[in-house]
Design a protein around this nucleic acid. Structure first.
Lengths: 216, 216
DNA sequence: CGCTGTGAATTATTTCACAGCA
DNA sequence: TGCTGTGAAATAATTCACAGCG
């Protein structure tokens, strides 16, 4: 009902929406009221036609001959990306990465509240990071139940990640952002996004290693 | 010469290579000597035909009727991804995220050595993280020159990222892993990969917000 | 005989180019 | 007139399906 032409949104489109939203937020902060697909697309580094195509999957938010109202488009995309609600998020693993996320000021503005962070390491438990207490790993289940979190972030070592995922899923978590360098096995209906820092660097290294050693 | 069929490798293929490498490494650690495209593909969560197609862009590493020698394939892909060399990497920003990377034990095994971390914050300068000293931001140029780093990681706030990128590029950096929530403007020939944590969560939130509220 | 490597077919994504509305 | 929304075309990526080799 809220998504008109729901004949399946391309995954690639979904992955670009947050980028549009971020630039629109910046424009709004700068006091810009209207923007054309050309200008917006340029700021996000996509082709204007692609931006228009992406938006067209969800509706017609622009005015022909004019462009898009920044406020309107921002709240429309915000709606799509779920920014209207604040999603409770649980972080498993209170190492540097977990703490970086807990401190990440931007998350709240973008629709996420880190409700708890758990760890198995005694020396970390009890600490407070960015206003969030580090709780014992054993309380994970109860935390998920209590907060109703459906989104979780895994920043544990590889060896602990699968078991943590299993426990989260058993409590109703259906979206996982995984930083552990391991391919998680999850049941149908659970969405996983993986960010592997070493892997990102290796992709860059590939390009470095193959930089046009052309004619010469 | 080292890459036979060099008629252009799909970007999607390049992005999967590190994943193959990681699983192969795990297999080698477990003492597995041979693996079929079926088994390997299953572990990485891709279709077997896709794995074979990906490899075929670079050469024929398998034996028909048998499969792949884990050691061989590992070192072939390692070669492609540049793991044979150790790439010096500079980190700009010694916040939690920067420190998480500096401590990341896996990086060295995967072909990267964090040579330095810089920050503008006086209170962070002089600290040592994972054996890496936090140096003053002003020394960035000299560090890049001295180490010959071509790969850098940006973990600064958004407002500082573009300028840091400009400075890095001016010193010869050609690959940037950007964690700042901003679209970097870089000249042709510089590769940027962006990881925006809030954006990753928003992609998950999109899926959560649109979970099949089907018939009912 | 079994599994790789790969043409051919299919599907997904992007771009072109322009009709149509404000 | 100017810029959106979108069919149609082009390109990119994936999968099928099987010939061919060890």
């Amino acid at each position: 009902m809220s998504t008109p032409g729901n004949g399946q949104i391309p995954q690639a489109t979904i992955e670009r929406l947050p980028g549009y939203l971020r630039v629109l937020t910046d424009l709004a902060d700068e006091g810009v009221a209207r923007v054309s697909s050309n200008a917006l697309a340029e700021a996000v580094h996509v082709q204007p036609a692609l931006l228009r195509r992406d938006l067209s999957y969800f509706g017609s938010y622009g005015t022909r001959g004019v462009g898009y109202e920044v406020d309107t488009l921002m709240s429309e995309i915000g709606e799509l990306v779920g920014t209207r609600t604040t999603w409770p998020v649980v972080i498993v693993g209170a190492g540097n990465l977990g703490r970086a996320l807990a401190r990440h000021g931007g998350l709240l503005h973008r629709g996420f509240q880190v409700v708890s962070m758990v760890d198995t390491d005694e020396t970390r438990i009890g600490a407070e990071v960015g206003g969030i207490a580090v709780l014992p790993d054993a309380e994970l289940e109860e935390i998920v139940r209590r907060t109703g979190a459906r989104i979780a972030v895994l920043t544990t070592p590889a060896a602990a990640a699968q078991q943590a995922a299993d426990r989260l899923i058993a409590q109703g978590v259906t979206s996982i952002l995984n930083f552990a360098p391991i391919t998680l096995e999850v049941p149908e209906g659970v969405t996983v996004r993986a960010v592997d820092l070493a892997q990102e660097l290796q992709i860059l290294a590939f390009h470095e290693a193959h930089r046009t050693e052309p004619v010469q």
